[in-house]
Simulated assay, not measured.
Amino acid sequence: MQSAGKVSVHDKFFDIGGHSLNLIHVNQQLAKQLNQSIPMVEMFRRPTIRELASYVSGDAEQVAADTQSVNQKIRKANEPIAIIGMAGKFPGAKNVEAFWRNLKNGEESISFFSDEELLEAGIDRQTFERSDYVRAKGVIDGPECTKSERICKKYQQRASKC
């Protein structure tokens, strides 16, 4: 992650240079430190330190009220937006409609893999036992995987055996 300098509890993770892989790493570190699993969808729903701390502590209503005034500076609450057109492939969703349904319902679309599954996919034990190795991937169904997603096919083979 790029150097963010001084970070406020109101700064959004992605606005200060974070990306999805960083967020997975943060999720894993929080799980270790707090001895509590936080669903990835909640990490995306609560992109600020304050919102996430509130979720973890169970004090979401108070932070929601405090955060609303901060967010109003950015845009008005419930301000409508227009999506002109959208297409894409997403983990756990065959089309855009399924993707939005998953988001709305808080469906986890990232696949997490055991030692056996990683070995079966051809990943050596030395690699996946590293502390910085992420045992998760957004698997996209279908033969449309690009060359850069060659491992996708191995994950798909694993998924078809389930």
Rank of each mutant, 00 (worst) to 15 (best):
S3V: 02
S3W: 12
S3L: 13
G5A: 05
K6T: 07
K6W: 04
V7R: 01
S8C: 05
H10Y: 07
F13Y: 12
F14P: 00
F14Y: 01
D15S: 01
I16N: 01
I16Q: 07
G17P: 00
H19K: 09
L21T: 10
N22M: 10
I24R: 14
H25V: 06
V26R: 09
N27V: 06
Q28G: 12
A31L: 03
A31E: 08
K32Y: 06
Q33P: 04
Q33R: 05
Q33M: 03
L34W: 02
N35S: 13
Q36Y: 14
Q36R: 15
S37D: 14
I38D: 04
P39S: 13
E42N: 07
M43S: 03
M43R: 00
M43K: 07
F44R: 01
R45M: 08
R46L: 02
T48R: 05
T48H: 00
T48N: 01
T48F: 01
I49Q: 05
E51Q: 10
E51L: 10
L52P: 02
L52C: 00
A53M: 07
A53H: 01
S54C: 10
Y55S: 07
V56S: 04
A60W: 03
A60C: 01
E61H: 00
E61I: 04
Q62A: 09
V63K: 01
A64N: 08
A65W: 00
Q68Y: 02
S69D: 08
S69I: 04
V70W: 06
N71S: 01
N71M: 02
N71I: 00
K73H: 07
K73E: 07
I74A: 04
I74R: 06
A77Y: 11
A77Q: 12
N78F: 10
E79K: 11
P80T: 02
I81A: 11
I83H: 10
G85Q: 08
M86V: 03
A87V: 06
A87M: 01
G92I: 06
G92S: 14
K94N: 09
A98Y: 06
A98Q: 15
F99E: 14
W100I: 14
R101N: 08
N102W: 05
N105R: 07
N105L: 05
N105A: 14
N105D: 09
N105G: 06
G106W: 03
E107R: 09
E108D: 06
E108G: 08
S109G: 12
F113W: 08
F113S: 13
S114V: 05
S114F: 08
E117Q: 15
E117C: 07
E120C: 01
E120Y: 05
G122W: 00
D124I: 11
D124T: 10
D124Q: 15
D124G: 03
R125P: 04
E129R: 08
R130L: 04
S131A: 11
D132K: 15
D132F: 14
Y133Q: 10
R135V: 13
R135H: 12
K137N: 06
K137R: 13
G138C: 08
G138I: 06
V139L: 12
V139S: 13
V139M: 15
I140Y: 09
I140F: 15
D141M: 14
G142Q: 11
P143H: 15
C145N: 11
S148D: 09
S148F: 03
R150M: 10
I151Q: 13
C152P: 02
K153V: 09
Q156V: 12
Q156R: 08
K161M: 11
